[in-house]
Amino acid sequence: MAEITLQDIIKPENQVYVKTKLMTDKNLSYCPGCGHGTAHRLIMEVVEELGQENDAIGIAPVGCSVLAYEFMNVDMQEAAHGRAPALATAVKRLWPNKLVFSYQGDGDLAAIGTAETIHACNRGEQIVMVFINNGIYGMTGGQMAPTTLPGMKTSTSPYGRDLQSMGNPLKMTELVAQLPGTYYVTRQAVHTPSAVRKAKRCIRKAFQNQLDGKPGVSFIEIVSNCNSGWKMEPVASNIWMEENMFPYYELGDLKVDGQLVEKK
């Protein structure tokens, strides 16, 4: 049998997977094993599949995904730290027929941007908000986030998060689900193929809500890893996430079609 060369493998007819053209060819700036890249790809695949390439406008945060505009191949704006929902609000109100989304980390969305998050959700802005919760500040070198778990070590909680002096992990998603302005609220993950498929369905639903003119925010939390900040190998970080993050941040829908989901 003739040997298969790299050139053979990458021939179009042999490809079983093609990257969406809505992801640029830029090398991702994320650490190997980080969930940010997967989340980017899912959003862009959905935008492409919905045929919204020319109508989507994204807002990038300040955090590791500050350069999301380098990778997502649609019109993008870069917000100040925490303010993405305010930018998205105005973009959507001034261009009501465009598909508007924000993308933020937990420091960005749940610490410095709490007010913007709560009020965009409370006003019921017709936008998609994607929230990457990795329990830490990745970009600045692993400091404590509002979502950092009890006892978890970070560079500003070097002896573990002490709830008494540092407060409790903030479940922003549960909080915004309570607001009448949110229409769809869900918490997903992207660390396994099945989780990815599920997360993609949710992202699609969120964007579809906006296209269908459904009232209110579609809010998707993605519980993700920060293997660098957690100081773990990528695989170990995913196991740690399943064992520690998921029990605290339970996956699943919190609100669908404007109705809170009953806990079983």
Binding site: A111, I112, T140, G141, Q143, S155, T156, S157, P158
Partner: peptide, 14 residues
């Protein structure tokens, strides 16, 4: 609040 290039201040204090 953490921000580069001065996050060492709060990290050192903690």
């Amino acid at each position: 609040y953490p921000i580069t290039p001065q996050s060492e201040v709060i990290e050192y204090l903690m």
